[in-house]
Design a protein around this nucleic acid. Structure first.
Length: 426
RNA sequence: GUCCCCAUCGUCUAGUCUGGCCUAGGACAUCAGAUUUUCAUUCUGACGACUGGGGUUCGAAUCCCCAUGGGGACGCCA
């Protein structure tokens, strides 16, 4: 049975690239009926912090990733690494230099890897230096404790980033020297920024937290990450984790570095947003509104109506806030070009005032009745409905885009609508 | 500098392993049109690629070599 792992180092937030690594390992385990484990690489005690670990755990769960056994912490196993290193010194494969333990690199050997993604890759040991196993301060070096623990955990398949490809021959040598079975490796290409450079803040964010805060749904982020380096086949673009588990085959992963495309992520997020109900989205919207300082400005009922109206017009939850700001008070963003185009002429002002006058006599302020009133007025005055709709939209929302006008009016309510129309018409 | 990985539309990719079905398919983005007598959704269409050069072969996006380009690694970081 396959056993795979994700081994984060709690020295910072969960990087989007690490999240992808975790994701593919998880999918590999679930699709093959194997186990997915977590190992905490906290050997750098000075830089490791509990709060980072908590954030990583939270983010993994948020993405839908769970693990089958309690996480293993490397900081608790320094004695194990030391005795392993000691055994290699005894057998003559390593030597000591002060308090450090160093592995003697054999000469002239070719190490061949049959990578699950790249196929055959080979290295010559002449290109590799002797490797530190235990540092002078007693802490283990990455490549060494990685091997000791992967063997200890019975890891059978290691799926990780291409940045580890050149670590692999070193690790294979450790497995051999220690007399341990060598697992299968699969190195997936790194994600680059849109400009081909290392992924950074200006590409839209590097941490899972940033995407969460921006209002991306975990399903959408997962879906997008899954499409980077793997193809579900056919013309599929939208795929859930569960469906991916059913059809995943590591053979379909490409060895080609991919650029992170925020536009496509946004599109996918929009797809998921549109498919959710306002009720399902409510907690997330409330959270993101609270985080940006908007609290208790509308009832849940009104919020749900707004979400249902706007979910097909936004790509992230954060956009909901700016798109609907005119519902939450009298200070909201104004599209100056829209004002210029629709509210400046005397004719439009007169149309606004006339329409407002009609509205004042309405008791039933439902969108159906409002639309009826608008259409009737257009007919009476020989106008096209658009000539009433556009100025009204800008007058009550400050925007040229948004939900259907009459639904907007209904939710805003008679007093606000008329007040804003009168102000724009004066 | 040395070693390693990679190379199809602007981007993600299908096709490459098992050469002919590829006048290279899909999606995002962009542009245009239709629908919606408002916004968006939706629909239709357009634009748009096999990095270059040598081979091998009846035939190459697919196999081989070289060049170029991109990325990674060469830490007592992980």
């Amino acid at each position: 049975m396959a056993r795979v792992r994700f081994a984060p180092s709690p020295t910072g937030y969960l990087h989007i690239g690490s999240a992808r690594t975790a994701l593919f390992n998880w999918v590999y385990a679930r699709s093959s009926g194997g186990k997915f484990l977590l190992r905490i690489e906290d050997t750098d005690i000075a830089r490791s912090e509990e709060r980072f670990l908590e954030e990583i755990v939270t983010d993994l769960k948020w993405l839908g990733i769970n693990w089958d056994e309690p996480p293993l912490r490397q900081s608790k196993r320094f004695d194990v690494y030391r005795s392993s290193a000691e055994s290699l010194v005894k057998s003559g494969k390593a030597y000591r230099e002060g308090d450090a333990y160093i592995f003697k690199m054999p000469e002239g050997r070719t190490i061949e890897i049959d990578d699950m993604i790249h196929g055959k890759v080979s290295f010559n040991t002449n290109d590799i230096k002797d490797q530190v196993m235990i540092k002078s301060d007693g802490s283990p070096a990455y490549n060494f404790c990685c091997v000791v623990d992967d063997a200890h955990l019975g890891i059978t398949h290691i799926i990780r980033g291409d940045d580890h490809l050149s670590n692999t021959p070193k690790q294979i040598l450790f497995y051999e020297a220690l007399g341990l079975p060598v697992p299968k490796f699969g190195h997936m290409p790194l994600i680059m920024g849109a400009d081909g450079a290392k992924l950074s803040k200006r590409h839209g964010g590097v941490s899972v937290e940033e995407y969460k805060a921006e209002g991306y749904l975990p399903e959408a982020l997962v879906n997008y990450l899954l499409l980077l380096g793997w193809s579900p086949g056919g013309d599929r673009e939208i795929i859930t984790l569960d469906e991916a588990v059913k059809i995943f085959d590591i053979k379909n992963m490409t060895g080609v570095q991919a650029k992170f495309d925020l536009q496509k992520l946004r599109w996918i997020n929009g797809e998921y947003l549109a498919r959710k109900s306002g009720k399902d989205l409510l907690p997330m919207v409330k959270k993101i509104m609270a985080d940006s300082g908007n609290t208790n400005l509308a009832s849940d009922e009104v919020l749900i109506r707004l979400i249902d109206l706007y979910k097909i017009r936004i790509k992230t939850l954060a956009e909901f806030i700016t798109a609907t700001d005119h519902f939450f008070g009298d200070v909201y963003s104004i599209d100056e070009k829209g004002v210029e185009k629709h509210l400046k002429s005397a004719e439009n002002k007169s149309i606004l005032n006339h329409f407002a006058g009609l509205l004042e006599h309405m008791d039933d302020f439902s969108h159906a009745k409002l639309e009826e009133a608008c259409r009737t007025m257009a007919e009476d005055k020989g106008l096209k409905a658009g000539q009433i709709i556009h100025p009204t939209r800008v007058a009550i929302s400050g925007k040229t885009t948004g939900a259907g006008l009459f639904e907007m009016m209904e939710i805003l309510g008679k007093p606000k609508v008329i007040e804003r129309m009168r102000r724009a018409g004066s």
